[in-house]
Design a protein around this nucleic acid. Sequence first.
DNA 1: ATAGAATCGGAACGCTCGGCCCGTTTTGGT
DNA 2: ACCAAAACGGGCCGAGCGTTCCGATTCTAT
Lengths: 248, 248
Amino acid sequence: MSRRWNTAAPVPAPAALRADARRNRALILDAARSAFEERGLGVPLGEIARRAGVGTGTVHRHFPSKEALFRATVVDRIRLFTDTARELADAPDPGAVFFRYLAAVVRLSARNRALLEALEASAEGLFEPTPGVEKGFQEALGVLLTRAQKAGAVRKDVEVEDVVTLLFGCLSMERRRGPAGAPGRMTALMCDSLRPGRNVTKLPAIPAGRDETACAVCGEPVAVARTGRRARYCGGACRQKAHRLRAR
Amino acid sequence: MSRRWNTAAPVPAPAALRADARRNRALILDAARSAFEERGLGVPLGEIARRAGVGTGTVHRHFPSKEALFRATVVDRIRLFTDTARELADAPDPGAVFFRYLAAVVRLSARNRALLEALEASAEGLFEPTPGVEKGFQEALGVLLTRAQKAGAVRKDVEVEDVVTLLFGCLSMERRRGPAGAPGRMTALMCDSLRPGRNVTKLPAIPAGRDETACAVCGEPVAVARTGRRARYCGGACRQKAHRLRAR
DNA sequence: ATAGAATCGGAACGCTCGGCCCGTTTTGGT
DNA sequence: ACCAAAACGGGCCGAGCGTTCCGATTCTAT
């Protein structure tokens, strides 16, 4: 099945491999996937080699570095979610489709520590999955979101970026809760925050010109001076509290 | 101020230290806190020593291990939040207090990588902040939650454990978004999920006897056989999709 | 001021792990 | 069956880090 992603991956030539090389490559990829999913990037390459039944040298012949191997397993999984989203792009009942899709992605990733770590690192700019992979996912998800919004099932003031971040948050939360404690509970809660209705708050706007900011303690809006101050507080009480916090 | 937590910490005697030792201890704790908050547990002890202007040997004289030092900084921060929650326990307008408290905790922790890592590790049982510290926080938070629920500001079907997990999720999300992109936006969204109203879903129950489970793909409920099966699907389509996913 | 003890600093140690090298083994075309 | 090329595997190296150790230094009681 699809090994097509290889062509875009940094790994050189997927064609014309000797039979044993092809077999070992698959074994390595397989072992790496499960090892990374269980224990994250921290798992030693030696263990992956051992699980795959090969030597560490063989691993390095197929993948120039540990990161390349890690990236391959993660990209693979994201592509899968993207494909699923595209398949659902014209399914009936956009609202239900959207929420079920979110729940499914979380459920299928909740045990995947590698994906979580990749998303964390990607946010900090330390790790870039093959260019376009994340963008492709966002686009496919965006289609589902827009349809759900047009159908009135999702509040209009959320953007794709919010949903991606929310997915990330659900992943973190479900993982924290572990397989025992009510799987899907946090995700269901999160989905409620996306529904339109009378109990919704005005969300803090995404960047834009800033003439006001939020009080660093209580969160109330405060007009910000042009003087490049760092933190603003809404009054004496909050400022005192901030000092107390800073005093450690 | 309060160095009281030391008495319970694994670090031996806080009393009768020589003047230079007392000074260095404070310098180390201070450097460790900022270093851990910026870069997490991954920061080398050598850098902490350098920032504090002492040698690595001195660090180890005051704290038996890197983990002990890490724990000290984290526990300190959690205690602070606990204290704040206790102070708010009889403030007027329980609903507003509750939501503002959540937002404040997230805002003050969003840059704190150490806290996030400690919470992750604690969930996996790899790290136990001084016994009672987490429990104390949960109790104090529970008071605020119960009051807000009684005031009708928070839906009745969430429990303290949910709120703690939600806090953790908000921390992850706000951190992912970085200081640039709309701070507090994800937290505001999550708070909406806690509000009562007509657009709330029935949440998956916390553990309990399990005679049914959720379809591993679409999430619909399925009666589970007594045969200790691993995963259950709601029908042929979902089972096929699961196989496709498993086939990598 | 002085002596003795407490503390300091950083060199040294041991361990883990990613990456590389090269003698050995396997493969597949002839 | 044979052989050249491809692939294998694990020993080896170096880097990074936590921890330990001990001679040098600083403090404080007298």
